[in-house]
């Protein structure tokens, strides 16, 4: 996806829809007011942040496009889970389905992130990094996330929600730990490479 297309993603509208859905969920389950309030405060902060970024930079700016795309993706996940929660509270789908929806989205996100990581074009020789080591570390990270994402997806589709939560947490934290260890090894000063 190029920068021009990313800059046109409707991030602000999606955040606004998320705020409306948060209000609706707050009305449906007032006993969880703390959670709804916190997420709503976060959504308002994101909306203000996005407005500031847009006011200060041009839409074609690479950093502004990345922020726009990240906020759109984040708001879309929240909109999907809140829609599922509202549908569950209204008896349209079975209650608690929102956790399964978030889990499936997060698994897909892990797979997409894993695929995308080694394709990011970066100044690989920046700060004396060894390009081969950088690329190898990114490929390893990509594989870890893709495998964890696929296994997590199976867990969320096939297992009971409680066990799926545990399986996904172990897979995700395990993948993150492996990537951090590999990344540290690739850029440690013992290798004579600065990060």
């Amino acid at each position: 996806m190029n920068d021009r297309l990313i800059s046109k993603l409707p991030a602000a509208t999606t955040i606004f829809i998320a705020i409306i859905l948060l209000g609706y969920n707050w009305y449906l389950t007032p006993e969880r007011a703390l959670v709804w309030g916190l997420v709503m405060a976060g959504m308002f902060a994101a909306l203000i942040g996005l407005t500031i970024v847009r006011a200060r930079t041009s839409p074609e700016n690479a950093t502004a496009s990345t922020i726009n795309a990240s906020m759109f993706a984040g708001a879309l996940i929240i909109v999907a889970s809140l829609s599922a929660a509202a549908a569950g509270a209204n008896g349209i789908v079975s209650p608690g389905i929102e956790k399964r929806v978030v889990g499936i989205i997060m698994s897909v996100l892990l797979i997409v992130t894993g695929n995308y990581l080694p394709k990011i074009v970066r100044p690989l020789d920046a700060h004396n990094c060894d390009p081969a080591k950088t690329k190898a570390a990114e490929r390893f990270a990509g594989w870890c996330f893709v495998v964890a994402g696929i296994l997590g997806l199976f867990a969320w589709v096939l297992l009971d929600t409680d066990y799926a939560k545990l399986t996904f947490a172990i897979l995700g934290l395990g993948a993150c730990g492996l990537v951090v260890l590999r990344w540290q090894g690739a850029f440690s000063k013992r290798n004579g490479v600065q990060s």
Partner: peptide, 19 residues
């Protein structure tokens, strides 16, 4: 990469605490 790992780790911790 640390930013991505940070986001994924938070989600995993939330699921773990929920379990």
């Amino acid at each position: 990469l640390y930013l991505i790992i940070h986001a994924i780790a938070w989600v995993c911790v939330i699921f773990l605490v929920d379990f």
